[in-house]
């Protein structure tokens, strides 16, 4: 599972999609889950990723969020699923590292989450140890986010 996460490329869109003015705040530790402790969790994780990709709603969420981030409400309409279904699927996708959650703060102070696919390319390798799944992810952090992470860790 090493080398599964590539963060070299810059392809982030944190653009404002609709007419409402809003600021997109990205959570600090969504990216690179299990980066260091994937030795023992490798098999479980690939199993979990297979299960996610087998799920029709989870796939639809990923497709809908691949080019721009969407709120749970928008996903609920686009996928024709209930909000709780969307939240449940989104949570599992985030746990797998396939999806990123960002918090949007509106001008009136309300907060809500938007989701953006992190999955770019998935590779399944078979050897005597079993299956191993690696995926390349799109970086979702901007320079200022990395700067904030760095400074706050001091």
């Amino acid at each position: 599972m090493t080398g599964a996460y590539q963060t070299g490329r810059d392809g982030l869109q944190t653009s404002v999609r609709d007419s409402r003015r809003r600021t997109i705040a990205e959570p600090r530790h969504v990216s690179e889950p299990n980066r260091d402790d994937n030795d023992e969790r490798g098999p479980d994780r690939s199993h979990e990723i297979f299960a996610q990709l087998d799920d029709e709603y989870a796939r639809e969420i990923l497709v809908e969020t691949v080019s721009s981030s969407r709120s749970a409400h928008e996903l609920s309409e686009a996928c024709d699923a209930s909000l709780s279904t969307i939240y449940r699927r989104a949570e599992r996708l985030i746990d797998c590292g396939l999806l990123a959650e960002q918090t949007v703060v509106e001008d009136d102070g309300n907060h809500y989450s938007v989701y953006e696919a992190r999955l770019d390319r998935l590779t399944v390798d078979l050897d005597e140890e079993g299956f191993s799944v690696t995926f390349e992810s799109k970086p979702t952090e901007t320079l200022s986010d990395r700067f904030t992470d760095m400074w706050e860790e001091l």
């Binding site: 600021t23 705040a25 200022s144 986010d145 700067f147 904030t148 400074w151 706050e152």
Partner: peptide, 15 residues
């Protein structure tokens, strides 16, 4: 500006 954006996005007083 990057530090200021970090402050706006994360509401971080340190930034």
């Amino acid at each position: 500006f990057q530090a200021y954006r970090g402050y706006r996005h994360h509401e971080s007083r340190r930034m």
